[in-house]
Simulated scan of single mutants.
Amino acid sequence: MRWLRAKLQCADHAADLAQDTFVRLLTAPPEGRQTMREPRAYLTTVAQRLLIDHYRRLSLEQAWLETLAQQPDLLMQSPEERLMVREALQRIDAMLDGLPPLVRNAFLLAHVDGLSYGEIARRLAVSERSIKRYMVQAFERCILLIL
């Protein structure tokens, strides 16, 4: 808790992440908990990963708020719509985070930039067949996270 408080400069956020850390410990498979030799190191590792996720969510949220600020008033969304979009962005971010860099780049170039597989292959200096494999890998990850 003290370590998290020092990193976050906020006792409330530190308490939340400490609780999440222990929830992860309690929901870990029992055989993993029984063989744990360094519980303090394990807790620190889990807390560090949760801290990284916390900062990633903050960064994503800040980018979304900046995008919203640039929209004309007529296009402003309701708070419910904003929450739905923010949650969708967090799910997409989690999905992309688990992909290898080339797979992630191929997926983003196809779905954000709208490039064809051939254009993506030229840009990433790989074969078009590799791009097809990358896209299958990305879609499999999407499906697994949805289920």
Rank of each mutant, 00 (worst) to 15 (best):
A14T: 04
D53S: 05
S130F: 00
L65Y: 12
R86G: 07
W3C: 07
A14Q: 02
R123G: 04
M1C: 11
N105C: 09
E128H: 08
A121T: 08
Y42A: 15
T21F: 10
V112I: 13
Q62Y: 12
A110S: 14
Y117E: 10
R57A: 14
H13I: 09
I146Y: 04
R123C: 03
E38N: 15
E31Q: 05
H13D: 12
L75D: 02
R122S: 15
V136M: 09
A88N: 12
D53N: 07
A6N: 04
G118L: 11
L109Y: 02
V136N: 10
L74Y: 03
P100T: 08
R40I: 15
L109H: 05
Y117I: 05
M76G: 11
D113R: 10
M95Y: 00
V136P: 00
R133W: 05
K7H: 07
P79I: 12
P29S: 10
L74E: 13
M1G: 12
R56W: 03
G118R: 14
L58K: 08
V23G: 01
D113M: 07
M84P: 02
R24P: 00
E66T: 11
E87T: 14
L51I: 05
R104A: 09
L60C: 05
V112C: 09
K7A: 15
L89T: 01
L68T: 11
Q137T: 14
I52Q: 04
R91W: 08
T67Y: 15
R49K: 14
Q90V: 07
L115T: 02
R82C: 15
Q9R: 10
P29F: 09
A121W: 07
E119W: 08
V85G: 03
D53G: 06
R141L: 06
L50F: 08
A14E: 07
I146Q: 04
Q62P: 03
R123A: 14
R129N: 11
D20W: 03
L25K: 01
G32K: 08
R56Q: 07
I120E: 03
Q90P: 00
V126P: 00
L145V: 01
R122W: 09
Q90S: 12
L75A: 14
Y42P: 00
Q48R: 12
R133P: 01
G114E: 01
R49H: 10
D113K: 06
Q48V: 11
A63N: 12
L144W: 06
S78W: 02
L65G: 04
C10E: 04
E140D: 13
T35Y: 00
A110K: 06
P29Y: 11
G118V: 14
H111D: 05
H111C: 13
P72M: 06
Q71E: 15
A94M: 02
K7I: 14
P72N: 14
I92N: 05
A69F: 07
A125I: 09
E31K: 05
L115R: 04
Q70M: 13
R40S: 15
Q62W: 11
H111Q: 06
D20C: 12
R56C: 09
L74N: 10
Q34C: 11
G114C: 07
C142S: 01
